[in-house]
Design a protein around this nucleic acid. Structure first.
Lengths: 158, 158
DNA sequence: CATTGATAGTTATGAAGTATAACAGTTATG
DNA sequence: CATAACTGTTATACTTCATAACTATCAATG
């Protein structure tokens, strides 16, 4: 594919130049690396990525329904159930009856849930500060905006 | 967590402002979206992401061993086996004996494999051109370089 | 050169993530 | 009121990913 396709019988370093030209490859590699690190950051709080994300959204959007939350997290309703079960069992959130709709639950964080969320978010921010220490504030802004445009464009393709 | 934590009993849009402040969240969302789209692009070639990536690396680095390939792809040796099995069954690559080491295989692409690789890469590039059409050439370069620095920093954390 | 330890590829297995279908209870609609 | 649609749930299967254990082979050391 690229210029230097040479015999690799010896232990030459493997060239991934073709793949490095692809944005999808670079995004995925970076995502995996950051993700793995985030998992370690959240482990002390006994939170997985999805559990943490759900908790944040519940704290920020008290009263939302599970269907809304699943959509915001871009996961299936059915897969959200165990996540909510976990958070509820640990009394970090509550499933409250909705007066207007007896099918749905209004999700709200407990005081403990709000506190844990705050602590975890501080840890995640500290972690990101280390990861992004090489980037200027402007570069971070540009990165965020670029990624959002890519996400948008990719979703529109479907 | 953020400024506007308001009751969401109605159907207000869900705010993910706290998570959007996190680079890890933005990277993951963009990665998932692009990934899903890439899967669709590769489907006509009956290639999955990992199978495609493996094929590219074999074409670009003829003669490399499976352990080298697994490391380059950042997956476990054991999980690479089925990928190589698939490519070999379809006669896109070959496991050749290594004269210097009878434990290892020298992986090489067949003519059909090289051709398929070229066609698939063209399709992926065309797909990326659509996804990235909103970005200037300079923005793409900046993105690639930024992502690589992040990947590097995150890996160094471990 | 024999023994010991490391390495390449493989297999089996389990954990985690993800997608689909079906169901009961409830709400909305014609 | 009857039908359709929606909410949360369960069951299920498929994919991805990591780990341990195994065979065959190579490398190193006494």
């Amino acid at each position: 594919m690229t210029r230097h396709a040479q015999d690799n019988a010896g232990d030459r370093p493997v060239s991934d130049a073709t793949l490095r030209d692809l944005a999808g490859y670079n995004i995925r590699r970076a995502s995996n690396a950051v993700q793995a690190d985030l998992v370690r950051t959240l482990a002390p709080f006994e939170l997985r990525m999805i559990t943490y994300s759900a908790l944040v959204l519940i704290v920020d959007n008290p009263g939302l329904r599970q269907t809304q939350l699943a959509e915001a997290l871009a996961i299936e309703r059915s897969n959200l159930v165990v996540v909510i079960d976990d958070l509820e069992r640990r009394e970090l959130i509550g499933r409250n009856p909705m007066p207007t709709d007896r099918r749905a639950y209004a999700l709200t964080a407990t005081l403990a849930g709000t506190r844990l969320c705050r602590k975890a978010t501080r840890a995640v921010r500290a972690h990101e500060a280390r990861i992004l220490s090489l980037l200027s504030e402007e570069e971070r802004q540009v990165l965020a905006s670029t990624l959002r445009r890519i996400e948008q464009a990719a979703n529109d393709e479907g």
